[in-house]
Computed example of a mutant assay.
Amino acid sequence: MTGGQLADVLEGRVADPDWLADAVDRVARDPDAVAALFPAAGRRCGRGPLPDEALGRDAGPDAAPDPVGWTVDDAARVLLLTALPLHGTALAGQVDALYRYGSADEKRAVLRALPLLDLGSAGVDILHDALRTNDTRLVAAAVGPYARHLDDRMWRQAVLKCVFMEIPLTAVADLDRRADGELGRMLGDLADERRAAGRTIPADAGILLALIGDLPPAGGDGTADRTDEREGKAG
């Protein structure tokens, strides 16, 4: 999702659209203004959920409350960050400060904004911090598109944490592409532990395990055949 798409999604859903338009303009002219405007976005714009259809996601008729879902203040804060006229180290410093000193809602907005900002891999430490928490909102946001900057070991641990915390695996960006035999082994071990304790893993994790459980381990051969093997299992 781009800043322009977020602006479209927010149209008609912001409590004080004039405030948001002015805030975006102020941040574009004076990056330091974001420090005061970013926390105020929830109070001025509202905190209600954004409809899944507005975000291009189909929740389905039986969907449970989704920690992956965006809120109005999420989108407003991300819009403010995309307006920053900064790049590289200066942008990374501003974003890091907003995350470090922000509330949980503000931290989540920073995490959602990372893939839209000109940061390269400079925001990875923010992901690491979020993944150390037990806040489902932060963990779910941390495994979004910016998680492409996580190395394979950390990414697998992040997926496993989602399973532990029962965060829907739909939150995990690039899951089909990055899931490998090592993740399958880890999920299998977890499933065995749960089974021994008379418990099960979430249904979506069970489906993933069925698809990748026999894939080659990371670094092994057969990489080019993974898609065919998954399709064969799915069929």
Results as ranks from 00 to 15, higher is better:
R230E: 11
A205H: 01
R29I: 00
V143R: 00
Y146K: 10
C45Q: 03
V124H: 04
A59R: 12
A173L: 03
A122M: 06
F38Y: 15
A113M: 04
G219W: 03
L117N: 00
D74H: 15
L208H: 09
L55N: 07
A59G: 12
C45D: 11
Q157C: 06
R153W: 10
G102T: 08
A23Y: 00
A130P: 05
G46W: 04
L127P: 00
L80A: 09
G181P: 08
V139T: 04
R43T: 14
A54I: 06
A140T: 09
E229H: 02
M154L: 13
L86Q: 15
T71G: 11
R185G: 07
D32T: 11
G60L: 07
R132E: 15
A205L: 11
A147N: 04
P168C: 12
D189L: 07
T133A: 09
A191D: 12
A210S: 15
L190D: 11
R132A: 14
D228N: 10
R29Y: 01
W70C: 02
P216M: 07
A54M: 04
D73H: 12
D174H: 10
M1S: 08
V24N: 01
A75N: 07
P65S: 13
L50I: 15
A130T: 02
A141G: 13
G88N: 04
D176E: 15
C162E: 04
V143C: 02
K161N: 02
A171F: 01
G46Q: 06
L37I: 06
L215M: 10
E193G: 05
A197Y: 02
A40E: 14
G69K: 04
A196H: 07
A205T: 07
P115H: 03
A92Y: 03
K161Y: 03
G213V: 03
T136R: 12
G144D: 06
V14I: 13
A97T: 13
L37D: 02
R112P: 05
L114S: 01
T136W: 00
A171G: 09
R100E: 14
G102M: 03
L117Y: 00
L175W: 03
A141N: 11
A41L: 06
L86W: 11
G42E: 12
G222S: 12
I126Q: 03
D174Q: 08
E193V: 12
D18T: 14
V14H: 01
D189N: 13
D58Y: 06
T82D: 09
L111W: 03
M165G: 02
D74Y: 13
A83T: 10
R199E: 14
A41H: 04
G232Y: 09
L98H: 08
L80C: 10
